[in-house]
Write a protein that binds this DNA or RNA. Structure first.
Lengths: 218, 218
DNA sequence: TATTGTGAACCGGTTCACAGCG
DNA sequence: CGCTGTGAACCGGTTCACAATA
């Protein structure tokens, strides 16, 4: 709920949630900040400080209850209610995303694909109905879309983004290796593997066989 | 060359390089830090400070020469010499990566795929020969592999990583939504779209229709 | 006694103002 | 005169030490 949370903290909360999910599936029911920290590759201070932004979830002397903390993190991250998702751009990447399992694990619900290719529009890809970009407005209104995966070619990225903004989609997960500009009321999170690859090249070049790094990533 | 460069700076250098490439293709030959800053969505101070870590590339009074600065950034980022890449895990994602164009644009050369599925090993996917994971050591030695794209299932990620480390691959671009652990002499950069998606959910939930964000991403 | 929760110190990156220079 | 390059101020996130408490 509060404001002023470092975005690095949010990234780590996502990791803690993953760790807790793993621990739970291994039957571990309690864990200390030390334990969580080791699994997440951060310091125990960091774990406690990150959690402290949102409240007190542990028991002094004995640590955290895995199931409880996991649920708190899901709640904090907004992963308890369903998010309705469309995929914009049903090329190779869009199709790979459409087939990704695990998505409904946290209530991300793929409701449709969008493309401009007449041979795709109207068909099903996987079990996703593909609509034309021109029909975006109705689609978004009817399906109350929360999030769009942007997976179009670079040249089409800004135009598709503008269309999403006009249609009222509040969140965009951008897979396109370019900067897209949106008004302040729209949230964009980027997943740019080319940028990651170039950073990697830099670190390799600067410290050949001698760099330590574990980067969070969009 | 120097040490102690903020990794955020490296991320931004990648963006500047992209901007400069765009400007060059538009026939723009000179640009000020103000101009670059606007295109990259950062402040002009930031652009100058980032560049200052590596030297002086501009001309006082008239800005930067696009072509020159672009080449400097390519050199700084290590994008002038070829990088030899293998893809580990030739599932849907691995295949999408194998087909990605633009990769050789900066001299990233896909040399092979790796999988454990007998029906894939020995075949060509796209034009990539697929080897068995057990033959990784020879493959890496023969092909002098610099970078591995890790695109295996979550359960197999750490084991595949260990194999890459043993085989002597110095850099890993990790697409798997999990934390992989490596010794200090190996560099890992992660591209985790599920993490990005969860962060997006958080920002949407915390500031419904009222969040500004432009995230860098792995 | 063990481990959390947190105010304060520390550190590093960003912002800024201006000196340096074409 | 304009724009770059940079030392210094500022700010925010991380680290730490320790008080609180089961």
């Amino acid at each position: 709920m509060p404001k002023g949370i470092p975005s690095a903290t949010v990234s780590r909360l996502v990791i803690y949630l993953r760790v807790l999910t793993d621990l739970e599936s291994e039957g571990v029911s309690r864990a200390s900040s030390d334990h969580l920290a080791a699994e997440a590759n951060v310091s125990a201070f960091q774990v406690r400080k990150d959690l402290a932004y949102f409240g007190s979830f542990g028991t002094r002397g004995s640590g955290y209850t895995v199931a409880t903390l996991k649920n708190e993190l899901r709640r904090i991250l907004g992963l308890t209610r369903p998010w309705r998702v469309i995929i914009v751009g049903m090329g190779r990447l869009g199709q790979a995303l459409a087939a990704y399992p695990q998505l409904d694990q946290y209530d991300f619900k793929l409701v449709a694909g969008v493309d401009v290719d007449a041979s795709k529009v109207g068909s099903l890809i996987g079990d996703l109905p593909v609509h034309h970009l021109d029909d975006l407005h109705e689609l978004v209104a009817e399906q109350t879309v929360d999030i769009a995966f942007l997976a179009v070619p670079v040249d089409a990225a800004q135009a598709a983004t503008d269309a999403l903004v006009r249609a009222g989609v509040p969140g965009i997960l951008n897979f396109v290796p370019t900067v897209v500009t949106v008004p302040a009321h729209v949230t964009v999170e980027s997943v740019d593997f080319l940028a990651g690859l170039k950073r990697l090249a830099y670190f390799l070049q600067v410290a050949p066989h001698d760099g330590e790094r574990e980067a969070a990533a969009g």
